[in-house]
């Protein structure tokens, strides 16, 4: 008579019964990440909605006397962030082959470049007089872009943790998938914000 792996180890199964491994359709880590992303999506939806309605009150945007945002430089920065997501896709496909470390490191570096370039851009905008309290334009710019930057930093922390676990050999497939899903969200959100805030 065989025994199953129950909590106390005393559960008896009938002779001949076979254990069936049930693989979840969606791993718990991924599902939790999706629920979190859902709340984040609505949060950013509210920010974009408030910005769009406020922008509609003005005949032209940015309002007169306000500095223009660096559209071209940020477009390049957007491409860098999208490239990091492409590297994460590559890392996901190479995970089974044990070759995910290089693309994961590349995605981390590109993400770090994005945040550094955003910081450099902020210094430039502050020197031109655009602050959080200078106008609605400045308030929405720093609020929306800054909130996204916090998410990129959180995503970078996740990538660093994933890489450390990958190197240590303790990274689970579902954990890696959850981290990738969060990074895809952070990257996919940015072009929408760029379109609404910069263009």
């Amino acid at each position: 008579m065989g025994t199953a792996d129950s909590f106390d180890g005393t559960f008896q199964v009938t002779p001949g019964a076979r254990r069936r491994e049930r693989k979840p359709v969606v791993p718990n880590e991924v599902f939790a990440t999706l629920v979190f992303i859902f709340t984040e999506l609505m949060f950013f939806g509210g920010l974009v909605s408030a910005h769009t309605i406020t922008r509609g009150l003005w005949p032209m945007w940015p309002p007169p006397g306000q500095p223009r945002l660096p559209i071209e430089a940020t477009a390049f920065n957007t491409a860098v962030l999208v490239a990091s997501a492409v590297l994460m896709v590559v890392a996901g496909r190479r995970e089974a082959l044990g070759q995910a470390r290089a693309p994961l490191t590349g995605a981390m570096l590109l993400g770090a470049f994005f945040v550094a370039a955003q910081g450099y851009e902020w210094v430039g905008m502050l020197s031109q007089g655009l602050t959080l309290t200078s106008s609605n334009h400045g308030a929405f710019f720093y609020l929306i872009v800054g909130t996204h930057a916090v998410h990129v930093l959180a995503g970078l922390a996740v990538l660093i943790m994933l890489r450390a676990r990958l190197v240590a050999g303790t990274l689970t497939s579902s954990g890696f998938q959850a981290g990738r899903v969060f990074w895809y969200f952070v990257v996919a959100l940015w072009p929408v914000l760029y379109w609404r805030v910069y263009l």
């Binding site: 999706l34 859902f38 999506l41 609505m42 939806g45 509210g46 974009v48 909605s49 769009t52 309605i53 922008r55 509609g56 009150l57």
Partner: peptide, 29 residues
């Protein structure tokens, strides 16, 4: 009754966006 046409359009489009966004996300998942 928004003050301007562009503002009114912004209210309508953002109402639609915030209504459809959760449905699209849940439907997609």
């Amino acid at each position: 009754g928004a003050p301007g046409a562009s503002n009114e359009a912004a209210y309508v489009s953002m109402t639609a966006m915030l209504s459809l966004l959760p449905l699209a996300f849940i439907g997609g998942v």
